[in-house]
Design a binder for these strands. Sequence first.
DNA 1: ATCTATTTTAAATAGTTGTTTAAACTTTGG
DNA 2: CCAAAGTTTAAACAACTATTTAAAATAGAT
Lengths: 208, 208
Amino acid sequence: MPRRRDGEATRDKILTAAAEVFACRGYRGGTVAEIAAASGINGALISYYYGGKAELYRSAWDFAYQRAAGKYPVDGGLDDAAPAVKRLHGIIASAIARRSDPENRENEIMLNELSSPTGILDDVHARSFADLRRVLRKAVGDILGSGIAEEEQRLAVLSIFSMCIIPVKQIQKLEGNPAYVYQPEERIRHVYNFAMAGLLDILTGGVK
Amino acid sequence: MPRRRDGEATRDKILTAAAEVFACRGYRGGTVAEIAAASGINGALISYYYGGKAELYRSAWDFAYQRAAGKYPVDGGLDDAAPAVKRLHGIIASAIARRSDPENRENEIMLNELSSPTGILDDVHARSFADLRRVLRKAVGDILGSGIAEEEQRLAVLSIFSMCIIPVKQIQKLEGNPAYVYQPEERIRHVYNFAMAGLLDILTGGVK
DNA sequence: ATCTATTTTAAATAGTTGTTTAAACTTTGG
DNA sequence: CCAAAGTTTAAACAACTATTTAAAATAGAT
């Protein structure tokens, strides 16, 4: 047992600041000096506690990911026994809520990794996206059934997936109108209806 | 008139390499040394021709943007006189084709700007996204009519928008299956049908 | 109160970055 | 062929980066 344990508080401060800085500036853009300033600690402590910037990045992502995954389960909290349409709703609701949470830095870090991968998270960062696609694939498959071509099912999953992961906040920042903000609940309802209409259209052979 | 004009070829080589490097590594991650190596020129020429890295970045984006906007017009090549559903199809087709073109670096640069803005393109980089949303807003508005609430129309535009701009290539790179690739034509057809089904669902009051 | 493991600090370090400099080289009009 | 405008190069430069080092400070058990 360690004689002192005030280092734990320091580790947490670093982790929180690092997640925020890396989310905003990316891995290469976020400096250890900036993280040190944001957390009010000496930069040397980053090497002391985390060995280096790369390992801190990895820890910060894991920190953000664990928190988000616990708060917003990718399956929406419904198991495989639930009806497929209920599952689909749960998945969409959880995904959108997860990406609407202003305290969740996981989204922004993932977006950075997507646009310019660092290689540091190569073994893990696909998880967040892959998990969502997997459960979506299952729910959509159960709704459409085996009568619909694999290709069409893939496309449907991709479309619903894209509505779930779009970074609304960042896109809205580009627009001139910051007054308007999307209400997550409204958007969940809309995306679910939109998706169900699309799936139903596929099932009934499309608009002729 | 300049006595020599072989500098123009050098400028082009730099611009092409810069667009590629910035697209893959982002502004902060892409070094002038890397751009110099990729274009086979001396790094000092970047300062000589473009004044510095920031101005080169701006030029590279403009280079990529102009090319993409010319090749894939945001309105799909149809003017306001065309029927709204035809326009919607044209917009979707052009947007997806634009983002499926492997030679087009504009997408990746925009994605980087979205996730960690540099401030260098603040006055222009919203254009690409904003243009797409504007024409989508018009087409969706004409299809739904004034009987549908503004909020609902916004949500529909956002959903269609998200299906158009999702970075398929990057996401697929994360997946374990690189064998499968989406055919742009198939995806255009699917997204159009999916979108139309969603809009129709809104028009008819939704699935009761 | 003292001792010691632990934590924090300031300074030094080595490497990388973008940029400047000054000289060498090349094209091209005369 | 000449000369000058334009182009390219290698080296030097200053600023910034992450990391290491060694000393100082601190908390907490004895």
